[in-house]
Simulated assay, not measured.
Amino acid sequence: MRVLVVYAHPRAQSYNAAIRDLVMERIKAAGAEARLIDLYASGFEPRLSAQGLEFIEDEYLNQKGVEEHCEALKWCDTLIFVYPTWWYGLPAMLKGWLDRVLVSGVAFHLPPPEGGDIRPALTHITRLGVFTTCGASRHLTWFIGAPGRRTLLRGLRLICARTCRTAFAAHYRMDSSTPESRARHLKRVGAKVDRLLRA
C-alpha cells in the first residue's frame, strides 16, 4: 500500500497538524509506505500562471514545475487530504494544488476530437480520505452544500477507481472546540483511517 497525504495548513502547531500526525502514525502502524506533501511548508505555488493555462492541454508541458507532485500522485494507491475548511470550501492553497497537479495525462484524459467526457486516469487510487475542520456547525455546512467535501469526495472520486473506498471526518464548530471535543475527534479520525487502510 502506498499512501500520499496532502496537508494544507499555514500554522505549524495547528490542530490540523495533530490530525496530520495521527494520520501518519496510523499509516505507519498499518505497515504502508507513505509520502507527505506539506503545501505551506514546501512553499508550493498554487497560482496557475497565464503560461500554465496556455499549456494546460499539453500532457508534457502541463506538469512543468509540479513534476514531483504528479509523480507522487501516479505512485500512490491511497490519497488522503488533511486541511481546514474555510468559507465552506478548500483553502486556496489546496484548490491551487488541484488546479496545477490534477491535469490531463495525470488525473484524467481529455475527450477525443469527436467529443465526449473526460476519462479517469487515477484508476489506480482505490482509497480516498478527507479529514478537515470547520468553523461552522454541521447543519450550516450541509445547508451551504459542503462544497469542499463535494469537490474531493464526488468530483475527485469520479476519476479514481470505480470501487474507490472513502473516509471522511470533520470537527465542526472548531472555533468553540474544547480539549475533550478535539480528543474525541482524533479518536474518530484514527478509527476511520484504520478502516480505510484495511485490505
Rank of each mutant, 00 (worst) to 15 (best):
A170Y: 00
P147F: 01
P113E: 10
R149F: 06
E180P: 02
E54R: 15
P113Y: 10
V82A: 00
H185T: 04
D77V: 07
L61R: 15
A191S: 11
R195C: 11
R165N: 08
Y172K: 05
R47D: 12
I144M: 14
N16A: 00
T85M: 11
E25W: 02
P113I: 09
A92Q: 08
I37G: 04
A92K: 05
S14E: 03
I37P: 01
C70E: 03
V103G: 04
R26G: 03
P46M: 07
R149P: 06
R184V: 08
A32R: 09
A32I: 04
Y172R: 04
H69A: 12
R182P: 02
E71W: 06
D77F: 04
V23A: 00
L61W: 06
M174D: 08
A12M: 07
G89F: 01
F131H: 03
M24K: 10
F108E: 05
A167G: 01
R100A: 07
Q51E: 15
I159K: 05
L122Y: 08
A34G: 12
T123D: 10
P120M: 05
I80Q: 03
R20Q: 02
L197G: 09
I118T: 13
E180R: 14
P91C: 05
G116K: 01
S104K: 11
G116Y: 06
R2P: 09
R157V: 03
G116L: 06
G145K: 08
T166H: 04
G145Q: 05
E45T: 14
I159M: 15
S181M: 04
A72K: 06
P10I: 00
S177Y: 10
P120K: 10
E57I: 11
Y88H: 09
V6R: 02
A29T: 07
C70Y: 06
A30W: 03
D21L: 01
G89P: 02
S14I: 00
S42H: 06
R119M: 13
P147G: 06
I80P: 10
W86V: 13
P112M: 04
P91G: 05
E68F: 10
L36I: 06
N62P: 02
A17L: 06
R2A: 12
Q13S: 14
F131I: 03
T178W: 05
R154H: 14
H185K: 04
P84N: 08
P10S: 02
L4H: 07
E180V: 12
G43M: 03
V23K: 02
I56H: 13
R154N: 15
L61Y: 01
T151A: 15
R2Y: 09
K28L: 13
L122T: 02
I37Y: 11
H185D: 11
E25M: 11
A18D: 01
A29S: 14
C160H: 00
Y60N: 12
R11N: 13
G116M: 08
E45A: 15
K28H: 14
L153Y: 03
G155S: 10
P84D: 06
R198F: 09
A161E: 07
T85G: 09
L196K: 05
R184C: 06
A32S: 15
V23L: 04
D21K: 01
S14V: 00
H69N: 14
G65C: 07
V193Y: 02
F44L: 02
T132N: 14
T78I: 11
L36C: 11
Q63A: 09
M174R: 10
R47M: 13
